[in-house]
Nucleic acid binder design. Structure first.
Lengths: 187, 187
DNA sequence: CTCGGTTTTTGATATTTGTCAAAAACTTTG
DNA sequence: CAAAGTTTTTGACAAATATCAAAAACCGAG
């Protein structure tokens, strides 16, 4: 729990009162490799903080699993669309490694927003960071070649390559596994 | 100005005090077709509300202009990366039509966040909406074919097609203008 | 209306990436 | 450590999309 609070303070420093309030609301979850944190069709009512481990978001398309994001240590994860809109998720969230997570419900979080302006600020700032991160992925997806996207991955998020099966990485990069394999053989 | 406030209340209802504070900070800007709201290399220090008109965000790549987003009536627009991080923008924002905008500086907005919790909440909610919107574009860019992306455009944002030159739309969809032309000829 | 410039379309061809099938390499487990 | 399963690579070929060049359509100013 201390780790969670330290990381949150890194995002945006919080008063003791706000920290105590958060501490009361987050619940610890321990999951094993291949467990599901969320199944498609369910409404995702929680925001999670990933203390240790790795997971992926994926959806099914024509019988294939399309992994479109990963979560690692210190990431906030959720099915954002479902969490924000309250609609059923189109994606699954599955553990890639045994992991420790902390969960807070949307209801509790909304209540904390009312009680502590600074927690809402924290969230506003978190959204800013995540927005920028997504924007960069979007530009890569739309305007870079498969090879450039792979080089980008090596330079900026090498840890993904070291912890995730190539099949997941291929769809994360928006290419087939065979193409990824051929690109890799050029290095 | 009344229009701006009405739209903002649509996003999230505000108290009279918060509305008055906003009213004090927003400045009206009128620009003509082809004018620039932002040039690459400059830090974007303002958030804009587009009351009337249309504009595009684009950057230069190998001598080509890559349009990656459009703004229309009632959109909040800025170069998010630059606005959030304070770094120079890599993109240009150019008017596609004569437009009426309202500007607020980041400095003023930050001050308003301190004075009115509810304005920060408005912004948090706005980020949520923009995050989801971007997420959808990302999934389209990465996992749909050119034809599917065009069909999507017709179904969901037909107004773009009616107000923007095809050259801009092609790069918005992440395809060459020739390919877009060929896809269009199939309809 | 018409000239000059811009935008859009069409044609021919090249490049990139995907698909299917099989082989090879790696992992797990009894 | 060997069998069975899984993941990754390789090969042959097909499909999607890009590029370059030229023609056609459109558009605004005089």
């Amino acid at each position: 729990m201390q780790h969670l609070l330290t990381q949150i303070n890194n995002y945006h420093p919080l008063s003791a009162a706000a920290q105590a309030a958060l501490q009361n609301c987050f619940e610890k979850i321990t999951l094993s490799r291949n467990d599901y944190l969320l199944g498609e069709g369910k409404v995702c009512k929680h925001l999670y903080f990933l203390e240790k481990g790795a997971l992926r978001g994926f959806y099914n398309l024509d019988g294939k699993e399309i992994t479109h994001w990963f979560g690692f240590e210190n990431d906030f994860v959720t099915s954002f669309h479902s969490f924000i809109t309250g609609e059923p998720a189109v994606e699954n969230i599955q553990l890639l490694e045994g992991s420790i997570l902390w969960a807070i419900s949307k209801e509790q979080l909304t209540e904390l927003f009312n009680l502590h302006h600074e927690i809402e600020r924290l969230m506003r700032i978190a959204y800013e960071k995540y927005y920028i991160r997504l924007e960069e992925r979007f530009v890569n997806a739309q305007f870079k070649t498969a090879k450039e996207r792979y080089e980008n991955l090596i330079q900026q998020t090498l840890h993904i390559l070291e912890r995730v099966p190539l099949g997941c990485i291929a769809s994360y990069l928006g290419i087939s596994q065979e193409t990824l394999s051929r690109i890799r053989s050029q290095f």
